[in-house]
């Protein structure tokens, strides 16, 4: 009887082991960097967020980015206040996120160090408004750990953000740069 229970336990353990081995590999970070620049005039209008939450699945290429809008740091505190209060309405829309897929995830060999080009498609939500975004970037594999870099531009008006300085001191397009180490 004891022997049979042992056998049972062994086979069950095997099952559980195969369960974990088969689970999809998720890479994640909570300290990704997103930088944007919307300088329109002489005054530099740029901010950085070093607390970007990002994850992606190795098998499916599914990927998400999420940031707290209030987490963007400007050189100038007053500018940061205006950004949150007048433009982004951060108490109403505290988060901005991206949900999409790395469409060519199969071309990346996670076991081999190197730099791979990636294309990403998905939906970007800022200020409560979602728009389709498609961009290219690179994925660098170093000792099995991926790092994603990318840059793209968005039209501020597309996200329902308004204000009298947009198109003047604030550029109509914001250039966004992403750098996440997983």
């Amino acid at each position: 009887m004891n022997k049979s229970i042992l056998k049972l336990a062994f086979v069950l353990a095997l099952g559980i082991f195969s369960f974990s081995a088969n689970a999809q590999k998720v890479y994640s970070t909570k300290t990704g960097q997103i930088f944007f620049n919307a300088t329109g005039g002489i005054e530099k209008i740029a901010a950085v967020n070093n607390q970007t939450d990002s994850k992606f699945v190795e098998q499916t290429g599914q990927m998400i980015f999420a940031v707290l809008v209030k987490g963007f740091k400007f050189e100038n505190q007053l500018m940061e206040d205006h950004f949150n209060e007048n433009y982004m309405e951060s108490s109403k829309f505290p988060k901005a996120d991206f949900k999409g897929y790395i469409t060519n995830i199969k071309e990346i060999n996670f076991a081999k160090d190197g730099t791979y080009p990636v294309t990403v498609d998905g939906s970007l939500t800022i200020h409560g408004v979602s728009n389709k975004v498609s961009t290219t970037g690179t994925m660098k594999i170093e000792k099995g750990l991926p790092q994603i870099e990318g840059a793209f531009k968005i039209k501020i008006k597309d996200y329902g953000i308004s204000g009298m300085y947009i198109g003047d001191k604030i550029a109509p397009d914001a250039a966004i740069t992403i750098n996440c180490k997983y």
Partner: peptide, 10 residues
């Protein structure tokens, strides 16, 4: 049982 768990995992 373990086979069931395996397919569940997939």
């Amino acid at each position: 049982v373990s086979c069931c768990m395996l397919s569940f995992a997939q």
